[in-house]
Design a protein around this nucleic acid. Structure first.
Length: 598
DNA sequence: TAGTTGTTGTCAGC
DNA sequence: GCTGACAACAACTA
């Protein structure tokens, strides 16, 4: 029996798990008599966050699984989902039951968290914050890198070396028991309707069943603080298409399956895993679980290390950082630490000192020169439409109908499953930015944000910068071909056939370039490659490529060279004031290459 | 200052 | 399946 009368509110956020949760461990170590694990769900979150149906369901599954796990440890327990913004509901709850301890986990303190912490302090509530999301505390990692953003793996390794000889903390076990929850029926906490929930703008309007928003009562529709259903948040169940499932139980099962395959763990080298593999994929599929905190990165690190150390002792070949699995986790930490060092500006070009400015098409409005070229008819977009062609390319890229099967297959897999292989992400990101469309990486990052179930801001933004050669990476002349790259990994075209089924019958000779197939063959294979995207009179159709790739590659390469010559970064004065475009206009045309003279 | 390295390019030629 | 040319950035080392 608990010896104290302590009430502990445990605020779950990025840690939808019971294993290896330092904050949960600390909270239970207080030996509370009452323990209330809550998820505070700001109704605005449903409308303001760019989240597609696949990630919504993943989140709800994670919450349901966690709730079940609590129930297993104590039949009275669950995850208490409170539908109100933490800034307003947490003080109410503290007051209602006189809670005297409050526990929390996260690494990256955002403005909202700061606000909550200050409120707690004001209310005399003891707050415990523990980092549980990364291998190393991002702030500490940045500090050990001289307070600067970590921009390379060698910097990360050096900084980590200074923290704990490069070794993350060992994972903690899941608790064996959980104290009783609150007697909430005595709390007189009515299931009040929320006032002031602004449902507009609704970033997910396309995925909703109706405009009728039910997501407005703090205890939920059943008056029980239960985990919301898709219906409650207004998402149509039929729009969920991912085969990937959420929850700590699923995450631990996935990890243990991978770990048992010692050859796989021992030989894992990311650049050698195929982006074209499906059923099964060539990588671990653990990333969404790291995002939702259903799987601890430290557990993965140490479980993998055990296998690697055993193999080393047996003198078996073993891959190493940065290409092996621990290396992948270090890259994740690199992006988190870079984000911690830069702050909120990390997510944009505007105001971000580490990101290079490139004269992309479809720049964010805050970068456009005075907004003068913003089309009034498209005024609700958050980017400037400087080129109708580029906007069409962007939309076709997003919808998977560029006419390049490798790109389209990847983009359709992204939309359907919420996940694509890392190298696939490279391929489509390069294509949208420096290797094809010359569209701002910020547009691409937004699409990934909506569609990826493993979307993690720091990693997504960081990788888009990497691929667009605006930060972390700069060899822009290494450009992915939408034809050769796919062919290299999948000469038979199995991947394209799965995700672009209209091309399934095409001979492998034309699978990556269907427009080159003779008309007679196109007819024979049941799909015409046509410029008319809506034409259905001829049966199945697939679009012609939206541009000449080789031509676009050259234009992009020249423009990138020019942008590097200009040498501006996101926090430079010219960028902040909107006068940066003059620097690009002076030369008019990028300098011509001299190679043809030789 | 020159040379090397950087998780993950392409293409021709053998 | 390998090699080198291609064109050529930035950080780091010697």
């Amino acid at each position: 029996m608990p010896s104290s009368s302590k009430v502990v509110l445990y605020w779950h956020r990025t840690d939808l798990r019971l294993h290896d949760s330092p904050a949960l461990h600390a909270a239970l170590a207080l030996n509370p008599s009452t323990f209330i694990p809550v998820w505070t769900w700001d109704p605005h979150y449903v409308y303001r966050s760019r989240v597609g149906p696949n990630r919504w369901r993943f989140l709800l599954e994670c919450q349901s699984d966690l709730s079940k796990s609590y129930k297993k440890l104590n039949a009275k327990q669950k995850l208490w989902v409170v539908r109100e913004a933490p800034q307003t509901v947490l003080p109410k709850l503290w007051e209602a039951w006189g809670g005297n301890a409050f526990s929390d986990t996260d690494s990256y303190a955002r403005a909202r968290d700061e606000e909550v912490l200050q409120l707690a302090e004001k209310a005399g509530v003891e707050v415990i914050v523990k980092m549980g999301r990364n291998l190393f505390d991002p702030d500490e990692l940045a500090a050990k890198n001289g307070g600067k953003a970590t921009m390379s793996m060698s910097q990360v390794e050096k900084a980590a070396e200074k923290i704990n000889s490069g070794q993350p903390e060992k994972p903690l076990d899941a608790p064996q028991s959980i104290p009783d929850p609150w007697d909430w029926e005595k709390m007189k906490l009515d299931n009040i309707k929320q006032d002031g929930v602004e449902a507009e703008p609704d970033l997910n309007a396309d995925h909703r069943t109706s405009k009728d928003k039910q997501y407005t009562a703090i205890m939920g529709p059943k008056n029980d603080f239960g985990v919301p259903t898709l219906e409650e948040i207004g998402i149509q169940a039929s729009t969920v298409t991912t085969p990937h499932r959420g929850g700590e139980t699923e995450a631990l099962k996935l990890l243990s399956t991978s770990i048992k395959n010692e050859e796989y763990i021992g030989h894992f080298e990311k650049p050698k895993t195929s982006p074209a593999d499906f059923e099964p994929q060539s990588t671990t599929l653990l990333s969404p679980h790291h995002h939702f905190g259903t799987l601890s990165v430290r557990k993965v690190w140490w479980d993998v290390q055990e296998v690697l150390q055993k193999r080393k002792a047996e003198k078996k070949p073993t891959s190493s950082i940065p290409t092996n699995l621990p290396g992948q986790l270090l890259f994740r930490d690199m992006y988190f630490a870079a984000q911690a060092a830069v702050g909120p500006a990390f997510s944009t070009t505007y105001g971000n000192p580490v990101v290079r400015l490139v004269d992309w098409h479809l720049q964010s409005k805050n970068l456009a020169d005075g907004g003068s070229d913003v089309d009034t008819e498209t005024g609700d977009r958050d980017y400037s439409v400087d080129s109708a062609d580029a906007e069409e390319w962007f939309i076709r890229w997003k919808e998977g109908r560029t006419g390049f099967p490798w790109i389209d297959a990847l983009m359709r897999q992204l939309r359907q499953e919420g996940w694509i292989h890392h190298l696939g992400r490279h391929s489509v990101a390069c294509f949208l930015t420096r290797g094809g469309c010359y569209v701002s990486w910020e547009r691409g990052a937004e699409v990934f944000e909506e569609l990826l179930i493993d979307h993690e801001t720091a990693c997504n933004i960081g990788n888009w910068m990497w691929l667009s050669c605006t930060a972390f990476f700069s060899q822009f002349y290494r450009c992915y071909s939408p034809i050769a790259f796919g062919k290299k990994w999948d000469p038979e075209g199995h991947f394209v056939r799965k995700y672009c089924p209209e091309l399934a019958q095409f001979d492998k000779k034309f699978i990556y370039e269907p427009w080159k197939a003779p008309i007679a063959d196109q007819k024979k294979w049941g799909c015409r490659v046509t410029g008319d995207r809506t034409g259905s009179s001829e049966g199945q159709t697939y679009p012609k490529p939206m541009f000449d790739f080789d031509q676009r590659r050259q234009i992009c390469l020249d423009s990138m060279k020019n942008a590097y010559d200009v040498g501006l970064h996101g926090a430079d004065e010219e960028v902040m004031t909107g006068s940066w475009r003059e620097k690009f206009d002076v030369d008019e045309k990028p300098p011509k290459r001299q190679k043809t003279e030789k």
